[in-house]
Amino acid sequence: MNWLSQNLHIVGQLLADHLVLSIPPILLSLIISVPLGRLAAGSPRWRTPLLTGTGLLYAIPSLPLFIIVPAVFGFSLRSPATMITALTLYGCALLVRGAADAFSSVPQDVRLAAAATGHSRWGMFWKVELPLAGPVLLSSLRVVTVSTVSLVTVGAVIGISSLGTLFTDGFQRNIDASIITGIVLTVVVAFALDALCVLAARWAMPWQRAVSRA
């Protein structure tokens, strides 16, 4: 506790850095994965390549990916763009499958009813498919949120500052309070963002609550 009170300012700064690195990839992967997932769910021709491709992407370990991404995209190794790109790729790796499952979970008779009442393709997507895919999509988004927050810390070994810096610093300077603070804060941030996802979903999907109460 003593260490923490003396380093509150640094910890606060690292926490802010951490959020700046974790929130954009979560949002970006959601924005990219929803249309790709819809494509995979609606067309067997796209499904296999999309899901296999993203599945393999997920298999690539994070640290090597943090080194390969700048080489491929031409970023500098320690730039935030490296982290955000790599973590967005990871997020998509999980979310494309999640979104595909989510869109496949929309019942066929509901699609039929929406078409019969004269929804256009676009209207069907926004007003019927996306809301009804919501619950399954949410469960993947929560996984992506939590694992993104955790993965950001790995960037510390290549010198990208985040809560992970508390691990590398603490290890080099032999301060376990630093590392423990880092672990606790990472977990807290992960759960806080996770809770935020759940709250947002509850607000966006009122029928879910009503139905589970019934």
């Binding site: 008779d109 509901v110 929406a114 019969a116 809301p131 009804l132």
Partner: peptide, 13 residues
């Protein structure tokens, strides 16, 4: 158009 079981949209009142 009336569907079997109503064919209602489950997310709308």
């Amino acid at each position: 158009y009336v569907l079997q079981a109503g064919g209602l949209l489950p997310h709308r009142t």
